[in-house]
Design a binder for these strands. Structure first.
Length: 370
RNA sequence: GCGGUUAUGGUGAAGUGGUUAACACGCUAGAUUGUGGCUCUAGUAUUCGUGGGUUCGAUUCCCACUAGUCGCC
């Protein structure tokens, strides 16, 4: 069965949307946050904990699984779902971003990208066809097109060439056969340039995909620029398909993205900052290593229903993080994922009740972001 | 009791007769956005056991004291 996106409701004051996404492995309401499990594992958590933390769709990464253990191993296991014992929806990123983040030794040509493995330095060659073939073997529910994620800032001419190349790559990738339950998303590029975002969006839609992502964001461009990039693109995306803002996971960015019509977000932030001792709370981010929590025997957040808050104190989690015990990072990861999934639940509820902007105001009053 | 030896921040320790006393750990704070990396960044001794002396100048040289340590009786 192909992916189904139902647009349940449109916000009257903003471009926010309430929707439902249905795959062969289950459905979820949008807007939604998707935790990242790069190597077929959301770091430190097992699938049960992930689901208990409110997650209903996760990411995995083509580049990482291609190198290790290899897509054939996962195919032999019966696909990613069976391999990692997770039965919910999975989205796989194409590896385009890794090409960007491991940029030291890469060379981009029309055919594809040559770069070095971060594991053993061996030379690798990834093409749009190869990326989709790997994802086909992985068996994820949502497959991402192989794009180029250009660095920021960049010249207009480069971004234009790059966006056009990404379009050609998208067409090539689309020709690769996927499994019947799989769906392919295209990625809009175009940097900070309005006309290029428009061109990229319109042309990507012309090729035709099951959903559309906005790429090339959260690469150091600054918030205002990012919001603009989103705006420039979502205008030209069809209403009846989901929109996914790649790599964005700051609570404040959720509001800004949703306001502009975004349905899906993914980010490593909740799990990465967790392992470094930080927690999201309704009043802002908290660094559990801070001295002031040494004798604080209250939970991270009083009203939080997550496993960490229901069972442990800040003082204990602080001790675990300082002592470098893995349980500390686990508990903070559980909490942070729950924080973001709960925030999305609250946002969806506010959309249902026609008070999205009011809820945003309420949230911002308490939340001290940067 | 005698002789030797050492004495630098929270810890382990470098070092020099003369501008801001290495480095590591710890501690304190910050960062982190389609995860290579429990990672990265910054701050953290107005002062070198105590008291004298030599010197233009001493944490560095000398003396005494105190404390630790080793050996001998």
């Amino acid at each position: 069965m192909k992916l189904k996106y139902e647009l349940i409701k449109k916000d009257k004051q903003t471009s926010a949307r309430l929707g439902r996404l249905t795959t062969d492995h289950g459905s979820c309401e949008t807007p939604i946050f998707m935790p990242v499990g790069t190597q077929a594992s959301v770091k430190t958590l097992n699938p049960e904990e992930l689901v208990a933390a409110g997650s209903s769709i996760v990411l995995a990464n083509t580049y990482h699984l291609w190198l290790r253990p290899g897509e054939d191993v996962i195919e032999a296991a019966g696909g990613l779902h069976k391999f990692m014992n997770y039965s919910g929806p999975i989205l796989t990123d194409s590896g385009g971003f890794q090409v960007f983040s491991l940029a030291d030794t890469r060379k981009i040509t029309e055919e594809g990208v040559t770069f070095k493995s971060h594991l053993d330095g061996s030379n690798l060659f990834l093409t749009p066809e190869k990326s989709i073939e790997i994802q086909s073997k992985l068996g994820s529910d949502i497959v991402m097109s192989f794009d180029e994620c250009p660095a920021y800032p960049n010249t207009y001419d480069y971004i234009k060439d790059s966006a056009l190349r990404t379009l050609r790559w998208a067409e090539r990738g689309k020709k690769i056969k996927l499994k019947s339950h799989q769906n392919l998303f295209g990625i809009v590029q175009g940097g900070e340039f309005e006309d290029l975002r428009k061109m990229s969006a319109l042309e990507t839609v012309k090729i035709g995909f099951d959903g559309y992502a906005i790429g090339g964001t959260s690469v150091g461009e600054g918030k205002d620029v990012m919001y603009k990039m989103v705006e420039y693109a979502t205008k030209y995306l069809p209403e009846d398909k989901p929109r996914y803002l790649m790599g964005v996971g700051d609570p404040l960015d959720f509001f800004e993205g949703i306001k502009r019509g975004i349905d899906m977000f993914d980010c490593v932030l909740p799990t990465r900052i967790a392992r470094h001792g930080n927690a999201f709370t309704r009043s802002g981010k908290l660094n559990i290593r801070n001295l002031k929590y040494k004798l604080d025997f209250n939970p991270l957040e009083e009203k939080c229903d997550c496993y960490a808050c229901q069972n442990f104190s800040k003082a204990y989690i602080r001790h675990l993080i300082i002592a470098k015990e893995v349980l500390g990072g686990r508990l903070l990861s559980i909490h942070n994922i729950r924080f973001l999934t709960k925030l999305m639940e609250d946002i969806r509820l506010s959309l249902k009740e026609d008070r999205f902007l009011e809820f945003e105001q309420e949230f911002l009053k308490q939340y001290k972001g940067k």
